[in-house]
Every structure is written in structure tokens, then in C-alpha cells.
Design a protein around this nucleic acid. Structure first.
Length: 415
DNA sequence: CTCGGCATCCTAT
DNA sequence: CTAACGATAGGATGCCGAG
């Protein structure tokens, strides 16, 4: 039936840190990869989180996603470097350009990961493992950073394999290797088995991926939900039919959220922040020739309680003022006046039909607002392309809050 | 009973 | 300093009310 496939998963080792380190090495500076170091928030302010870490940093028990303050307690000498998304975008493109040379069937999975479908290329690459080594070595020699390559019969196995020993390694995970290489691993290591699922499974005595592979599917579905249970069971057995897709899907939603330095306690300042956020999102909609049919707000209280409210629109829009009006109403209706540390807006039900709405009369106000927004877009043009912003981990600790203020000031300056 | 709408949870980079 | 801590996206899940 379906052809047997060969899939590569290529993953840049500690991408942000590697990219920063390779730039510094090229400029004759010390190699961050050889010392305890990380990309993260401003250590002086002790805010933000660890976004990427060196292997020496890992030896201190530092983990990705943990607060900087905690990481610094584990390793006071930790060298902390702020993020630089311009650099990451450049390195990502160079990395993917090399990968793309080996097959047209490449899927960009994230800024630092690709899948390659190498099926049916035996004549060009008779030894796929040698080809994997070649790709890896070329990237290291030409670009100055290392990757791991995982090889499997499907994306799941390729991805699991690329996660084995790091850095600068090629691993395979073929069906006959699954019991030996994957089943002994902790359940939490399985792709899409996150903290919550792993915890539930462990409570039931399911500790390894092998345990999961042999567990009863119906039991798993009752424990984790119908789809999650089913999928995790398939994954644990190395089963995955999802194709390597070349073209990336259009976004189904646009969202932004901002953690503020000082808690928000009044509607006025919340409104101002949301105006800045809606302005950015609406510009992205227009840049993509899209409109949204649903507006949502998200917020987080100082007690870390998350809330969200959303509402469908009677007519899809790409107008800042329309979005912020709905967002303001949602916030007013739902917010119980607890101080907020985070506020965000999400736009969903994206409509790309691009067709102007048929109508016998033109809504004067809407036209006026659209012209205003277009003017704002052209001013914004010099700040560069929205996709860079989208890809960015937009705020590294020290910019949090400052960014919110800057957004508001920029917006205010225009009025 | 099923479906749409919504809030929340979970997972990933 | 004694709990502290990002942004963005997509999908799943559970509840509720309408038809």
C-alpha cells in the first residue's frame, strides 16, 4: 500500500545559543558553548527565563524555561546573553538553504528544525546515513554550528532520534530499533507527552515509553482523552502517518500578549495597551490580506489566574479601532478588577477570501478608519517585516514591560 | 442527540 | 530576593444551551 518512507529530522543544537556563539567565534571571541552560558533575560533584573543553554550550563541542572533567578542560583557564574532575533532569522535561513539542497520535500517545522522526506532518492543518495553525516558536517563547517540528524521511517521516529545523544550526531530509529532505543525512555520524553500527561501516566504506573506502548488503548483514552490517548499510544509504538508537507499552512490565528512591569489596575491603561496590541495585530492582518471573524482577550492576574473571553464579530474586520472596541468590551465584561500582570489579544476565524463585501452602500466610517490604518502601516514599514516579529520570541525578560511602554508611547506619539 | 460556541487546558518551539 | 517566570500558535476537552 503506502510506500515505505525515509524521513530526516534536523535540529540545531541549542539553536539560539549556538548561533550567538558561532557569531562570536567568527569575531574572535570566546566560545559560549564551552562555558556555562545561556540566552535569557537580564540577570541584573533577575527577570525572564532561560531560552537556550550551553551543555556546561546543563551540567549545573539549568533547564530551558526556568526563571533566570533560579538558574543563577544554580550557577552564579552563568554568562547570560540577551536574544537577537535578526541573527536567528539569518542563521535559520542559511541552515534551511543547505537542508533544502538535498530534497525538495522539506518541511520547516520551526525556526531551527526541518523534516526532509528522502523517500525514493536511493539513486542520488545510496547511503542515507552517509548523506546525513554530510549534511551535518557541511552545516558545521560552512556555518559554524552543529546539528543533530534523526533518521526514521516517519516524522515521529526521525524526531525522537534527533533527540538522542547531542551534539553533532546522527541517529537512526528504525522499527526494529524501537524496543531497544525508545521504549526504555521516560514517558515524558515522547513527543507530545508533556508534563500533565506524563504525570497522569506515572500515577498509573506507566513510567516508560515501552509501558505506554503496551498499555490498553481504551484505558489510555479514558485517562488522557479520546484523541490524546489514541495518538500517544500510536507514537509510543513508533506509528505516525503524517506527511512531510512542503508548503507551510496559513496562520489560523494571530495573537499577542504582554507581561507588564507594573500591574495594570485600571481600564484606561489596559485600554491603552490593548490599542497598541490591536494596532500591531491589525497591521499583520492587512499585510496578509486577511480579516478576523473573532476577537479574544486573555489576561493573567497577579495570582497567576488566567482568563479569556472571545466574541464572534457580525462582520470580519482588519481595522484596529474595531478590534480594540470589542477587546475593550470583553475586558470590561469579564475582568473583576484584580490587578493584572499580563494582557493579550487574539484574532481568530481568519478570512482570506479577499473579496470585498457586497453592499449597496459604503460605510463611511469604516472607509475613513481604513485610510487611517493604511497611513499607520506605511509609517511602520520602515520597522521591517511582520514575519520577523511573528517569529521572534518577542521579549526577553529585560524588555518586558519596557516593550509595553514603548508600544504605548509609540502609539500615543502618532495621535 | 448532536452541534456550535466558548473557556480552559495542554503542548510545542 | 524566599516565591520568583515569555511569546505565540494550534489542538483537545468539557460544558452548556439550542434545535
Amino acid at each position: 500500500m503506502g510506500m515505505d518512507r525515509f524521513v530526516f529530522h534536523i535540529d540545531v543544537n541549542s539553536a539560539f545559543l549556538s548561533w550567538e556563539a558561532s557569531r562570536r567565534v567568527a569575531m574572535g571571541e570566546p566560545d559560549l558553548r564551552l562555558i556555562p552560558s545561556c540566552i535569557g533575560g537580564d540577570p541584573k533584573k533577575r527577570t525572564g527565563i532561560v531560552v537556550a543553554k550551553s551543555i556546561p550550563a546543563k551540567k549545573y541542572g539549568i533547564t530551558t524555561g526556568e526563571p533566570m533567578s533560579q538558574a543563577l542560583r544554580k550557577c552564579p557564574n552563568l554568562v547570560v546573553v540577551p536574544g537577537d532575533f535578526k541573527l536567528y532569522t539569518k542563521c535559520s535561513k542559511a541552515f534551511k538553504a543547505i537542508c533544502q539542497e538535498y530534497t525538495p520535500a522539506m518541511e520547516s517545522f520551526s525556526i531551527d528544525e526541518v523534516f526532509l522526506d528522502m523517500t525514493g532518492m536511493e539513486l542520488i543518495y545510496p547511503d542515507l546515513i552517509a548523506t546525513a553525516h554530510q549534511i551535518k558536517d557541511r552545516i558545521r563547517e560552512e556555518l559554524g554550528f552543529t546539528v543533530n540528524v534523526g533518521i526514521g521511517r516517519n516524522k515521529l521516529c526521525a524526531k525522537m532520534a534527533s533527540d538522542f545523544e547531542k551534539p553533532d550526531k546522527v541517529h537512526t530509529l528504525f522499527p526494529e530499533e524501537i524496543p531497544e532505543k525508545m521504549w526504555p525512555l521516560d514517558v515524558g520524553e515522547l513527543f507530545t507527552c508533556g508534563k500533565s500527561s506524563a504525570e497522569r501516566l506515572r500515577k498509573e504506573g506507566i513510567r516508560t515509553i515501552g509501558d505506554l506502548a503496551h498499555a490498553d488503548v481504551v484505558f489510555l483514552q479514558r485517562l488522557l482523552g479520546e484523541k490524546s490517548g489514541w495518538h500517544l499510544h500510536l507514537f509510543a509504538n513508533g506509528v505516525d502517518d503524517s506527511p512531510v508537507t512542503e508548503e507551510q499552512e496559513e496562520a489560523k490565528g494571530y495573537s499577542t500578549e504582554t507581561t507588564v512591569e507594573e500591574d495594570l489596575v485600571d481600564l484606561e491603561s489596559i485600554h491603552q495597551l490593548m490599542l497598541a496590541q490591536a494596532d500591531v495585530l491589525a497591521a499583520r492582518l492587512r499585510a496578509d490580506g486577511a480579516k478576523c471573524g473573532c476577537v479574544g482577550v486573555t489576561y493573567r492576574t497577579i495570582e497567576w489566574k488566567n482568563r479569556s473571553h472571545q466574541r464572534k464579530l457580525s462582520d470580519p474586520t482588519d481595522v484596529t479601532e474595531e478590534i480594540v472596541k470589542v477587546a475593550g468590551e470583553l475586558m470590561e465584561e469579564g475582568w473583576n478588577r484584580e490587578p493584572l500582570r499580563l494582557v493579550g489579544i487574539s484574532l481568530t476565524e481568519i478570512d482570506r477570501s479577499g473579496m470585498e463585501q457586497m453592499s449597496f452602500f459604503v460605510d463611511e466610517r469604516q472607509e475613513r478608519l481604513k485610510k487611517l490604518d493604511s497611513a499607520i502601516d506605511s509609517i511602520r514599514g520602515r520597522f521591517g517585516n511582520a514575519s520577523v516579529q511573528r517569529a521572534s520570541v518577542a521579549a526577553f525578560g529585560r524588555n518586558v514591560g519596557r516593550k509595553a511602554k514603548a508600544q504605548m508611547e509609540e502609539r500615543n506619539g502618532k495621535n
